[in-house]
Amino acid sequence: MTLAPDHKPTFADLTLGERLGKAMPVLLVPILVVLGFIAIGVPSSWLTLTVSGLAMGMMIFIMASGLTLVFGLMDVINFGHGAFISVGAFVGVSVLIALGDWTGAASLLLNMSAISLAVLAAMAVTGALGWGFERVIVKPVYGAHLKQILVTVGGLIVIEQLIHVIWGPDEIFINRPEMLKGAVTFAGAAMEKYRLLAVGIGLVLFIAMRMVLRRTKIGLIVRAGVENGPMVEALGYRLRLVFIGVFVAGSALAGLGGVMWGLYQEVITAGMGEEMMVLVFIVAIIGGLGSVEGAFIGALLVGLLQNYVAFLEPKLALVSNIALMTAILMWRPQGMLPVVKAK
């Protein structure tokens, strides 16, 4: 016997405008790609720039995903995130230099094995570093944004100086593994092999991250925690442990992003992470703090726009991302896919 009166409620159908409004953030990327095609006019150049923009976007997304979840979950602004990017790059590049025979061999298997080991080492070190960073630097300043900014910037500076102590003050140049040098030609467009690899890795990571967040219990707890942490705890989950796990995973992903960015630029410096943080913050903010999907769309927009503008009007390339952030925040002050926080 049912305990409630017969009741068959339905939701009202959304108007076309409302449906478009909901889908607009996702549509922005294809719209930008089409606008880029119209503005550039030459299909081969457009294709090259699009692949380059997507590769750049994927790498920024990898670096930004951890930061946005950490902010969403525990309201922590971590300026020290850039340090994990730099440390990841130095650890990864050190492994690649040590495996010079593998990277110099004309064997895709050996090249990819070297990159995999470099990535694993970088992620292990930055993950461990992230754990220590959370315990020592972040934990004492929960709930105090100003202190968070001060101590995490301090942590960033200390770690950068430690990189100078361990690897020396000079920038390190790195050659890409033999089989990832050069480009492939498709429809008259030259596309760097490494950029294609970066697009593939970024896409796989995004799909994996989405699967974890959407299809697993731990992902469910993280998403719920971003929205209403106290209620997650009241249901019986140890949110602190979840947060530490996310912090470590986010730090490891920043390390992975550092290795990829180092190979992309073919040079690494202790300050590279700090420099990347501008783009990482732009991506996290325009995506909506706490939203992995938002960060993904934001990163692709940033990567594509920067490449298109650099081709069309190089002088405007530097301001293009700030302009993008301004426009998106005027349209949606909470970012494109904001997480609705419980009050």
Binding site: R223, A224, E227, N228, P230, E233, A234, L235, G236, L239
Partner: peptide, 22 residues
């Protein structure tokens, strides 16, 4: 809080604590 919940206390807060995006 989480230890109390795991000990067998269920809580329905005044604001309902619904996860809206889930």
């Amino acid at each position: 809080v989480s230890a109390r919940a795991r000990a067998g206390i269920g809580f329905v807060p005044e604001d309902m604590g619904i996860f809206r995006d889930l």
